[in-house]
């Protein structure tokens, strides 16, 4: 197992280098320039030229590439041109912010998705099953950004107009002033801020999980060992949650890792709409500002997460399914 993991990790290295090389050349060859935001009638072109020189942007592209590669291989991501601080400092912050968001929405995805899937499978062809199927399809087919807009419209904006008891925050990670309150208040505030973005991010995927779960559950329920369990006189609850669920979860668990790239893509839109300072909004801003080092670094981290996600799903598969471990 460990040998297999090592092999996979080593195999990922050329893959990551390839991604970074492609991104490097795409963003450097594209029009636009990190100094563009300084353009104004008060700033002379010579100053702009000097800025480009200070940033090393006046060198030939292949030299820039080699330089960047060298510092990257020594673990130095450099300075962000837009934020003016070391990327090694920015990255943990935004990564942690995005992880909070993705982890909460992963919980939503699996809890909600699996529950719905189980209900549907257990009551196959019932009214509840059909309604939930249609609902799941509806959420699955919905554009994330549109759903996010509707959520913030209803639960943040209209809620305050209509005088609802709870108005959910729709922007940022914290309310101003909470930092002077206690630890509990900060945690509660953070969770409140997480509700809307995590829901927007997770709901479509949860609908997908529900579809899988229903299929997997149905397959398991009709197998002999479930019939045996029932025949033994076990309660329906035990049969479903202990025997059936455990087996039906195998294919679902492996999805965990595969949903990561999905969630990261979605996070781009959701973080932009809810002003969540994570990887997604950072990468979009970096692209727009032509913040080359930051684009490279975020691309790298995203690619690493995706590779790790794939690996994770393989490992989980081995953990939950003994047949694979034996091989």
């Amino acid at each position: 197992m460990i040998g297999y993991l090592l092999r996979r990790m080593l195999g990922a290295i050329p893959l990551l280098l390839g991604i970074l090389t492609i991104i490097f050349f795409i963003i450097h060859l594209a029009p636009g320039d990190p100094t563009a935001r300084f353009f104004s009638p008060q700033v002379s072109p010579e100053v702009i030229e000097q800025m480009r020189h200070n940033l090393g942007l006046d060198q030939p592209l292949h030299i820039q590439y080699l330089k960047w590669m060298k510092s990257f291989l020594t673990g130095d991501f450099g300075y962000s041109l837009g934020q003016g601080r070391p990327i090694s400092e920015i990255m943990p912050e935004v990564l942690w912010n995005t992880l909070q968001l993705t982890l909460v929405s992963l919980v939503i995805i699996f809890v909600v998705g699996m529950l719905i899937g189980i209900v549907q499978a257990v009551r196959q062809y019932s009214v509840a099953d059909n309604v939930l199927t249609v609902l799941a399809l509806f959420f699955y087919s919905m554009p994330t950004f549109w759903f996010a807009l509707m959520l913030s419209l209803i639960f943040a904006l209209k809620a305050s107009q209509w005088g609802w008891p709870v108005v959910l925050p729709s922007s940022g990670m914290a309310t101003v002033g909470t930092e002077w309150l206690g630890r509990g208040a900060i945690l509660r505030d953070r969770l409140l801020h997480l509700i809307l973005p995590a829901t927007a991010l997770g709901i479509g995927t949860a609908a997908g999980v529900a579809r899988y779960m229903r299929g997997a559950m149905l397959e398991v329920i009709h197998q002999d060992f479930i019939r045996t369990a029932r025949a033994k006189g076990l309660s329906e609850r035990t049969v479903i949650f202990k025997h059936a669920l455990r087996n039906a979860m195998i294919p679902i668990i492996t999805l965990l890792g595969l949903y990561l790239p999905f969630l990261l893509s979605g996070a781009v839109l959701v973080e932009t709409i809810f002003a969540w300072p994570g990887m997604g909004s950072t990468v979009v801003n970096a692209i727009f500002q032509r913040d080359y080092p930051l684009v490279m670094a975020t691309s790298f981290v995203i690619a690493v997460i995706v590779v790790l996600g794939n690996l994770l799903s393989d490992v989980l598969y081995a953990v939950v399914d003994p047949r694979i471990r034996a091989e």
Binding site: S40, Q42, V43, E46, V47, N54
Partner: peptide, 9 residues
Amino acid sequence: PRVASPRQS
């Protein structure tokens, strides 16, 4: 010039 200040002018 090395500072490249936007108010250099």
